[in-house]
Design a protein around this nucleic acid. Structure first.
Lengths: 221, 221
DNA sequence: ACAATAATCCATGGATTTATGGAGGAAGCC
DNA sequence: GGCTTCCTCCATAAATCCATGGATTATTGT
């Protein structure tokens, strides 16, 4: 019959995966890795962590089986261990947002007031096909290269103001970034609107796009 | 632009949900709650916890928004806050099993050697329709009452040996219990086989059945 | 072989989590 | 009001987690 000690071991093993998700910085690292493979140094800088701290967090993720590594010369690349890990992270975000009011508040404080006017993935696809929208990817160029929506232009948000001329003036712009909690697309739409451009954002981002099994294009512009 | 402090707050808010999943005993409580509403005392006993410890864990789950309470006289009933919480728990189990070898080992140690011969939900439905299988629910009666597969008989595993006569001898028996990591159905199949009965188990259990949106019947036998 | 780069390992103090016992609060029964 | 039941809150000690800095390992280049 069910030995309580073995039962506890099984649930403790499951909890190891939960523990990996129990720290904000580790979730930030997962958020970055969901966009594509990355080196330790790059991850540490992007997440605002010391190198050793980032490395320690990555060990926890690795020992929980959520990420795997690949060595390339002197550099070690981390990536998610599978699509199911991305799905788990996305579902965690959704559950937190739905059932924990504090999450929604922190989200609004970080992203700015929720713009009501955003597009679903299907609406975006329709407009691209009809040619009634220009899609821009406002993530860092590195992440665009790792995978983006087919036909999207790479204009990182910190270059957007200086590259406004590249966008046709008579077509609506649709911006997207990493995922549901990514600030870049919010900032981009505010900036475009401030310059009198018609702009909306995709409701979520690349994470959810991949999970929906929609087509992804890789490589630089 | 993205304020790092606000960003950290958002990810810390997400991590609160992760923290709720970071302890084996809390996962055990979620496992029980996925079967239906339950009181604190009952949960504590079933999970092998002290009352105050169980209560403390339930507070953590409640503050993470994963469970909600309902008062009925002097008793407080806890239940999952929504189907998405059950889905999150199920996905956590799947990811842990797929990517963490220690989980699979602990699972085998607890459940016993994996029997190769188990049915999918669809196969079970087909056999019930064709009348070629008797389905038994080997969970505690309380959980059967809270919701079970339509047509299943309630025979808790600790009563199975003394109630063998209730099972028709010429029809195959299919046993199921809580979910993918539940020991009852494994034990039941071993016991039935030891008594010369043809028996298999459903590959997972009630948790996955509900998530698949298959019909559920409530109430006592 | 030696130096440089990228990342992990190790030790440490400070913060957080966990289990547990005792006190306290809310609802129901007499 | 008193008493019981069921549960939560509080205090505490042990265990664990976290960030950080210095030492160590692995690979590449000279």
């Amino acid at each position: 019959m069910g030995d309580p000690a073995r039962k506890a071991e099984l649930f403790d093993a499951l909890a190891r995966t939960g523990k990996a998700l129990s720290n904000g910085k580790r979730l930030e690292l997962l958020d970055l890795l969901a966009q594509g493979e990355r080196g330790v140094d790059s991850l540490a800088r992007a997440a605002g962590l010391g190198l050793t701290t980032a490395s320690a967090h990555l060990q926890v993720l690795r020992q929980a089986g959520l990420v795997v590594t690949r060595r390339e010369g002197v550099r070690i690349h981390y990536r998610l261990a599978g699509d199911d890990v991305a799905a788990l992270y996305a579902l965690l975000q959704q559950v937190a947002r739905t059932h924990l009011a504090a999450t929604e508040q922190a989200r609004t404080a970080y992203l700015g007031p929720e713009d009501t006017d955003h597009l679903t993935r299907e609406e975006l696809l329709d407009r691209v096909k009809a040619g009634t929208a220009t899609v821009i990817d406002v993530r860092p160029a590195e992440e665009y290269t790792a995978g983006h929506i087919p036909g999207a232009l790479s204009i990182p948000v910190d270059q957007l103001e200086s590259r406004l001329a590249e966008l046709p003036a008579d077509v609506e712009v649709v911006a997207y970034c990493r995922g549901a909690n990514c600030v870049f697309a919010h900032d981009a739409v505010r900036l475009l609107n401030a310059h009198g451009r018609a702009a909306k954002r995709l409701a979520d981002g690349m994470l959810e796009w991949r999970l929906a099994a929609l087509p992804v294009e890789a490589g630089a512009a």
